[in-house]
Amino acid sequence: MWTNWTSVRKVKEGETTNDLYAFLTTEANSEVGAIHPKAMPVILTTPEEVETWLTAPADEALKLQRPLPDSTLRIVARGVKEDSA
């Protein structure tokens, strides 16, 4: 989900319009929990889940707000993030 948002984020810059993003989270599964124990993004994994999310009544769509089963995700890199200068 995203929207344009106009506000003053930094006094030096004054009022700016920026893209503001949000995502839905749920409890962490074992892979994500090892890195961030409180939450993980909700991930839709099939076209049927996407269709449910976009078209179903809220009570049905929100049943998709659940962690992926353990061992569904795979950590492919570890280490400290380094930004180039």
Rank of each mutant, 00 (worst) to 15 (best):
M1A: 12
T3A: 10
N4L: 15
N4F: 14
N4T: 12
W5V: 07
T6M: 02
T6E: 10
S7R: 15
S7K: 12
V8C: 03
V8T: 12
V8G: 00
R9H: 12
K10Y: 13
K10R: 13
V11G: 03
K12E: 15
E13C: 05
E13D: 15
G14C: 01
G14D: 07
G14L: 00
G14F: 01
E15M: 09
T16I: 13
T16Y: 06
T17F: 06
T17N: 10
N18G: 06
D19R: 13
D19C: 08
D19K: 15
L20Y: 12
Y21R: 08
Y21C: 04
A22C: 14
F23T: 01
F23V: 03
F23I: 05
L24N: 08
L24K: 05
L24I: 15
L24H: 08
L24E: 11
L24V: 15
L24F: 13
T25V: 12
T25D: 04
E27C: 02
E27Q: 13
A28H: 10
N29H: 02
N29R: 04
S30L: 10
E31P: 13
E31K: 08
E31A: 10
V32P: 09
V32M: 14
V32R: 06
G33A: 04
G33T: 07
G33E: 05
G33Q: 03
A34S: 15
P37S: 15
K38P: 01
A39C: 10
A39E: 02
M40L: 03
M40H: 07
M40R: 02
I43N: 02
L44R: 02
L44H: 04
L44K: 06
T46L: 00
T46G: 00
P47W: 00
E48W: 00
E48L: 01
E48R: 02
E49N: 01
V50Y: 07
E51N: 13
E51R: 11
T52Q: 07
L54W: 02
L54I: 05
L54Q: 14
L54S: 06
L54T: 09
L54H: 07
T55E: 05
T55Y: 02
A56K: 02
A56F: 01
A56N: 03
P57F: 01
P57N: 06
A58W: 02
A58I: 11
A58T: 15
D59Y: 07
D59M: 03
D59P: 03
E60D: 12
E60V: 13
A61D: 06
L62V: 07
L62F: 11
L62S: 08
L62D: 08
K63F: 00
L64N: 06
L64E: 04
L64D: 03
L64F: 00
L64S: 03
Q65E: 14
Q65S: 14
Q65M: 13
Q65D: 03
R66I: 04
R66Q: 13
P67W: 04
P67Q: 09
P67S: 09
P67T: 06
P67K: 08
L68F: 04
L68S: 01
P69S: 11
P69E: 10
P69C: 03
D70C: 08
R74P: 04
R74E: 15
I75Q: 15
I75E: 13
I75D: 05
A77C: 05
A77Y: 04
R78S: 08
R78W: 00
R78G: 03
G79K: 12
G79S: 07
G79F: 11
K81N: 15
K81Y: 13
E82P: 01
E82M: 09
D83C: 01
D83F: 15
A85I: 09
A85D: 14
